[in-house]
Design a protein around this nucleic acid. Structure first.
Length: 880
RNA sequence: GCGGAGUUAGCUCAGCGGUAGAGCGUCUCCUUUACACGGAGAGGGUCGGGGGUUCGAUCCCCUCACUCCGCACCA
């Protein structure tokens, strides 16, 4: 039963009501029929740390478009939603919150602090669900997951224990990236490099040639980190460097602390051409020096502690000083002692912790690692073989580049929020790992305590595609929906997340966790700038939804998604919200003339259809094919663009206008009118279904009012192209009508006439059939081009405007000849343009190499164009 | 340093071997009973510079310039 549409499009009036009705209808939850073709996708779980930003709006809109498209296309579709505990990020946020009340996590203790974070999590995961709901995400909330859920935690333990048993997880002492602020180790990819203007300090070291000969020569050594000097245990030169060859094996005196340290030769560490060719060696605080120290069996002296302050080993004067304070003090003391040779300015890249921007301190410590190469090799192969396809493909090179140079993964974190490592230590030095908690040591029976470190947050999210399905149990979800089909996510987590999922998926399920990965670009502002709070150019997706509705935002995001970065600004969104408004109003117009009951008469009788109706159905069919094709290759922009163009510029601008004379009873028979209404309903109905994945709310609202066959448009079948609707002849004729109308309008404007001025049009058909067509559709030309009369037989009088349009000769007779200089210039310019084109075309066709070598259709096209241009030119010249 | 991408209309971007496209913006006209979040028209580009391949290049190859993004980082 049809209902009226509100006169104004107001999304806030229905969006939330509609979402509730979908959820109540259970449309987001797939059935468990293993026979049906399935489509499954898992959400990149947002961090529970806060509100969703525009990037989330994008990635979830794209997922929803694909999910809704697949669901309507007959796939048993599952979209799993959920959130990530996000280790450090969340812990940091809550710590900051507590700090406002003057409380540190140490005041609370581990258990109380973790409790606080859980409270935070409960608040925010609800907020995230609300936001996704407002966007229209068709995710199955009955399957919502969190990485710290009991089931997912069990998956984590299984994987950990199995990797340990397989020898792929080891615990050991190594130099890791340490964040002194967060007081935890982090992995290589969590380190970001910032270019910074710094100083290069040149320090003079005294050389003792041997015990007896103190003083004399000096070595000058450059450093960017003078404070680490306190921990130096050697000085290195290149073994072949003639300048220093004689000093190898001798000793240098470390300034300030006056420690005697060996001068060693190391071809790996030292580049004799760089700087002074002498390098200080600090095995405890530099990665290369650490390796050098191991090669030469140098002692390690840790002078910077876990908190970034100097240790007692740095000496009484420095102990307890912050590392940057210590740097100043060391420089000051060197200056005083006259051992600071010079200072140069220097730009270098400083590693910082990506989450908190604190300078990373390389630190030797005992951590847990994943031996990555045995996992990476199959993951490389999966992409190389095409088992996993990365889109856009250009990212594959980046993936290979990284995977082939991958380092072991530091998985332990000295945090409180996360999956505690399932390893148990006893006082006798035994250690056991176990899926179940242990109380007694399996070896000696002594009571055990669990490892205090937690796992890197990406360890658990790496299991997401199967841990959310219930793995390691053999659940129906695992059987039916795993592996998933498509993963849609940002390119920034290709290494953090996507690569880890492929590695874990292959290792533990024997299958790649998804077959396609679509990496979306970064949302930027209209100037192409990154959105950031400090720049103040951030667009909050919820503000946009409140303002213009979710559909406008979604459509803007989709049509802007080209595979690269996405420029998004208010004017862009406003432009596409006008499109939603257009859909609303066109539907309103259509619904004044149609009833759902029109369907009762059965399918459309094509044999009685008029040309314009056959034309719009043919155009609709092309758009249908295009949308399906583009969605299948993730060209969201092209798919949305095809719909935009069809609905607005073909359906609204032309078809509705061409149908009006018949619909409003100014022309045609009752049968014509009935068929036009039936076609109007058909086109609107199919358009709404085609549009639904992009703008779910407004299409549902209109569909409901229109009286759709299914209870919800989201489970109505997605249109597919039908060959019977293709109609090249109708397209040819209607294109001619459109072009003639445009030409008349154009000429009218050029000659300075207003729409009130009416002319007579002469047109010549190329054969009887065409002539009959123009006679039948003369009323259309008269209405849309605002003519007095159309003559198919008559001869145009002197002074008429002649032209050739789509192969048809036309002439427009003006009431009186109005000539201004401007108009003459215009005609002149038009002629010049045509002459120029014709000249180059003539030259081309006179060239034998072209006619011989170019494909036949190209040559034929050029010839046809040449003929048309010649005719047109002749007519245009008459106009002068 | 290694790798990848980009440079097309005023702005943001599509296109990619055969007569240069879209959205927004600009200018002109129009309140025609779905929509002024509208309709009709117009203007605007030697497709970063230079070579080459080709009958033909914005599109392929080389080269230069600039921009961006990864990765690696040397004191």
């Amino acid at each position: 039963m049809k209902e009226e549409l509100a006169t104004r499009y107001e999304p806030s009036a229905f969006e939330q009501r509609i979402y509730a009705s979908w959820e109540a209808g259970g449309y987001f939850t797939p059935d468990l029929d293993p026979e049906r073709p399935k489509f499954s996708i898992v959400i990149p779980p947002p961090n529970v740390t806060g509100r969703l930003h525009i990037g989330h709006a994008l990635v979830n809109t794209l997922q929803d478009i694909i999910a809704r498209w697949k669901r309507m296309s007959g796939f048993n579709t599952l979209w799993v939603p959920g959130t990530d505990h996000a280790g450090i990020a969340t812990q940091m946020v809550v710590e900051r919150k507590l700090a406002e009340q003057g409380i540190s996590r140490f005041d609370l203790g581990r258990d109380k602090f973790v409790e606080k974070i859980w409270e935070w999590k409960e608040q925010h995961s609800t907020e995230i669900k609300d936001q996704l709901t407002r966007l229209g995400a068709s995710a199955d909330w009955t399957r919502e997951r969190f990485t710290l859920d009991e089931g997912l935690s069990r998956a984590v333990r299984h994987v950990f224990v199995k990797l340990y048993e397989d020898g792929l997880i080891y615990r050991g002492i190594a130099m890791v990236n340490w964040c002194p602020r967060c007081r935890t180790a982090i992995s290589d990819i969590e380190v970001e490099f910032r270019e910074r203007n710094a100083s290069l300090w040149f320090v003079d070291y005294d050389v003792t040639l041997d015990e007896a000969q103190a003083g004399g020569r000096k070595l000058t050594i450059a450093t960017t980190r003078p404070e680490t000097m306190l921990g130096d245990t050697a000085v290195a030169v290149h073994p072949d460097d003639e300048r220093y060859k004689d000093l190898i094996g001798q000793y240098a005196i470390l300034p300030i602390v006056n420690r005697r340290i060996p001068i060693i030769a190391d071809p790996i560490l030292v580049d004799p051409a760089f700087g002074t060719g002498v390098v200080k060696v600090t095995p405890s605080h530099d990665k290369n020096d650490y390796e050098t120290g191991k090669r030469h069996d140098l002692p390690q002296l840790q002078v910077i502690g876990e908190d970034g302050r100097m240790t007692d080993a740095a000496g009484a004067e420095f102990a307890g000083l912050d590392r940057f304070e210590a740097r100043k003090k060391v420089v000051e003391m060197l200056r005083e002692s006259g051992q600071l040779a010079k200072v140069e300015s220097h730009t270098n890249n400083v590693g910082v912790h990506g989450k908190c921007d604190t300078d990373i301190e390389p630190m030797v410590s005992r951590q847990w690692f994943v031996k990555i190469e045995p996992l990476a090799t199959p993951a490389i192969e999966a992409v190389r073989s095409g088992a996993v396809q990365i889109i856009p493909q250009t990212w594959e090179a980046t993936y290979f580049n990284w995977m082939e140079n991958i380092h072991d993964w530091t998985i332990s974190r000295q945090l409180w929020w996360g999956h505690r490592i399932p390893a148990f230590h006893c006082p006798n030095g035994h250690m056991a790992v176990s899926v179940e908690d242990l109380t007694a040591c399996p070896e000696c029976g002594a009571p055990v305590t669990q490892e205090t470190d937690v796992l890197d947050t990406w360890f658990s999210s790496g299991l997401w595609p199967f841990s959310t399905m219930g793995w390691p149990d053999d659940t129906p979800d695992v059987r039916i929906f795993y592996p998933t089909d498509t993963l849609i996510t940002g390119f920034d987590i290709l290494f953090f997340w996507v690569a880890r999922m492929i590695m874990f998926g292959l290792r533990f399920t024997g299958k790649a966790p998804f077959s396609q990965v679509y990496l979306n670009g970064l949302v930027r502002d209209e100037q192409g700038q990154k959105m950031s709070k400090t720049k103040g150019n951030v667009i909050d997706p919820l503000d946009v939804v409140n303002d213009v509705g979710a559909d406008a935002l979604r459509f803007t995001l989709a049509i802007s998604t080209t595979g690269r970065d996405i420029p998004l600004g208010k004017s862009r969104i406003a432009g596409y919200s006008a499109f939603v408004n257009k859909i609303w109003n066109a539907s309103r117009f259509a619904m004044m003339h149609i009833d759902a009951e029109l369907r009762d008469a059965g399918p459309i009788e094509r044999e009685n259809l008029r040309t314009v109706e056959r034309w719009i159905l043919s155009r609709l069919n092309s758009a249908t094919a295009e949308v399906n094709r583009q969605l299948s290759i993730f060209r969201f922009d092209e798919a949305a663009g095809a719909l935009y163009k069809f609905f607005w510029h073909e359906f609204c601008d032309w078809y509705i206008e061409m149908a009006k004379p018949v619909l409003l009873g100014r022309h045609g028979s009752d049968q014509d009118r009935a068929l036009a209404k039936r076609v109007l309903l058909e086109v609107l109905d199919r358009s709404l279904r085609l549009l639904h994945p992009f703008m779910p709310f407004v299409t549902e609202e209109i569909w409901q009012k229109l009286g759709g066959v299914e209870p919800s448009i989201m489970i109505a079948p997605y249109p597919v192209p039908e060959e019977v609707l293709e109609d090249p002849d109708a397209e040819r004729l209607v294109n001619a009508v459109k072009a003639i109308i445009t030409t008349v309008r154009n000429v009218r404007a050029e000659r300075g006439f207003t729409p009130k001025d009416r002319f007579k049009l002469y047109i010549r058909g190329n054969d009887d059939r065409d002539s009959n067509f123009f006679r039948d559709y003369a009323y259309l030309l008269i209405e849309l081009a605002r003519l007095t009369e159309v003559s198919v037989e008559g001869e145009a009088p002197e002074g008429a405007h002649h032209d050739v349009v789509e192969g048809f000769h036309i002439a427009v007779e003006f009431p009186e000849k109005v000539v201004t200089q401007e108009q003459l210039d215009r005609v002149k310019r038009e002629i010049e343009k045509a002459v120029k084109e014709l000249e180059s075309l003539d030259a081309k066709l006179a060239n034998e190499q072209f006619t011989r070598n170019a494909p036949a259709n190209i040559v034929a096209g050029a010839q046809a164009r040449q003929t048309e241009l010649r005719a047109r030119l002749e007519k245009l010249q008459q106009n002068q």
